[in-house]
Design a protein around this nucleic acid. Structure first.
Length: 427
DNA sequence: TCTGGGGTCCTAGGACCC
DNA sequence: TCTGGGGTCCTAGGACCC
């Protein structure tokens, strides 16, 4: 029997999350903005129909928004993460093997499931809609790349009613579909490759499917070679059902207002390093190095530009917020230059290893390590129970002049007691 | 005035070693 | 005057994804 992989993808995920608690937004043009209310990161169908593109800076769209009454919301990631978890656990019931691919997408292996897949996929849609209120589409095919493409077809063509199963179609039928889709829609083919492929005379998905893998490997790399194999139904990419530990953990933000002051940058770096350390402990890992990064605003071309990063190795791999912050601050002092208007800072934890793999040495101060461990565990517990940021290092500061703007953020309906939705269920 | 954040994988090229 | 070759490891940067 043919392999059958489903890709379930939530429609306009962030917008759909907002609509769960604001049914009045249904049918209206809505966008969700990135941090600092910078760019459009999620658009309702009404907005897509207006031709507004993804990732466009919001300030450039304000006129259009006014004309069409577009409602703009700041992003509320704790809400989206929580809803995502609910969607993913519902989907898990439909297959023994699930890969949660992103906040709004999941692969499911349907190979051994002896039911009609299109109908089964409709059940998934109904279940998620009924239990969580999120609309999803499903693509089914014999490889991950094809499943992504099938999902794309399901989303774009109303006649599929939200589900498209390539395995149920004949080769000529598929080729007809593929001939009508731009090669840039294929998973893994980005803007750069699209230009180069077009120059080679490859414009549609069908063109790509019919190109020799060898030729693509020579012109590009193994990545593109695999894509062609996958388009032809040879699965090269396995389903990853265990979530691998992160190899790097990044925390970075643009500031609400530019700053040239070292104390502001120090506060930001302490805050970001603290957050990164928290994520590190969540996956029970240690970091062997921390990189610090600052930059001015590259879009303000006439301003003097500066950007610098430095990697600070840690003598011993650690997950202790204090040590990581200390190293980060030393790094910051090294790269900071006065006289620039900084727009962004960030930290990146690298050389990450599982806590259990920490090398022991003769010089281990066991008592200090136990103390550190206990302190960090307490810190995490309190912040988890009482709300993120309840306990933090003083170095983060209390005024946070640099903090980001979020003009129109919705409540944390599902993760904060004080903001709990009283009645979220719909008739 | 206002342009996101967090990740992965692959390759090329330099350093280094024998 | 003539100045090797091959392997490995590491890093930076590109491309892509959501």
């Amino acid at each position: 029997m043919n392999r059958a992989i489903a890709l379930v993808d939530c429609n306009n995920f962030y917008v759909s999350c907002e609509r769960v608690f604001r049914p009045d937004l249904e049918g209206k043009p809505v966008v969700v903005l990135s941090n600092n209310d910078g760019c459009v990161v999620s658009r309702s169908q009404e907005v897509k129909d207006l031709g507004l593109k993804m990732a466009v800076p919001w300030y450039q769209m304000k006129d259009l928004a006014k004309r069409h009454g577009i409602i703009a919301l700041s992003s509320n990631y704790s809400l989206y993460a929580d809803i995502s978890n609910r969607v993913m656990s519902l989907l898990a019931q439909f297959s023994p093997e699930q890969e949660v691919y992103s906040i709004d997408e999941s692969f499911l292996d349907l190979s051994g499931i002896a039911v009609e897949h299109a109908q089964y996929a409709q059940q998934m849609r109904e279940t998620v809609r009924r239990c969580v209120g999120i609309p999803v589409c499903v693509g089914v095919a014999s490889s991950k790349t094809l499943a992504k493409l099938a999902n794309h077809v399901a989303k774009k063509n109303a006649r599929f009613s939200g589900v498209c199963d390539f395995n149920a179609q004949t080769e000529p039928e598929l080729d007809a579909l593929f001939a009508a889709i731009d090669v840039g829609e294929v998973w893994g083919v980005g803007r750069r490759s699209t230009v180069r492929l077009n120059a080679m005379g490859i414009h549609s998905v069908l063109d790509l499917k019919r190109t020799s893998p060898k030729r693509l490997r020579d012109e590009f790399s193994v990545v593109q070679e695999r894509i062609v194999e996958e388009l032809n139904g040879t699965a090269c990419l396995e389903l990853d059902d265990v979530v691998p530990d992160k190899q790097q953990i990044i925390c970075s933000r643009s500031f609400g207002t530019l700053t040239s002051l070292l104390p502001d940058l120090e506060q930001a770096v302490v805050a970001y390093a603290s957050r990164a350390a928290e994520k590190l402990r969540q996956q029970q890992s240690l970091a062997g190095g921390i990189q610090v990064y600052i930059r001015t605003n590259p879009h303000r071309e006439r301003d003097p530009q500066y950007q610098q990063a430095v990697l600070m190795p840690l003598p011993d791999p650690t997950d202790d917020t204090r040590l990581l912050c200390q190293a980060a601050l030393h790094g910051l002092q090294r790269i900071y230059r006065a006289g620039y208007a900084y727009q962004k800072a960030g930290v990146m934890l690298t050389e990450i290893i599982p806590s259990s793999a920490r090398p022991r040495t003769l010089f281990d101060d066991v008592e200090a390590m136990q103390k550190s461990h206990a302190l960090m565990r307490t810190l995490d517990r309190i912040n988890r129970n009482m709300g993120s940021g309840t306990i933090r290092l003083l170095g983060e500061g209390t005024d946070k002049a640099w903090a980001m703007r979020r003009g129109n953020v919705s409540k944390r309906y599902t993760t904060e007691w004080a903001e709990l939705a009283v009645c979220a269920a719909r008739a």
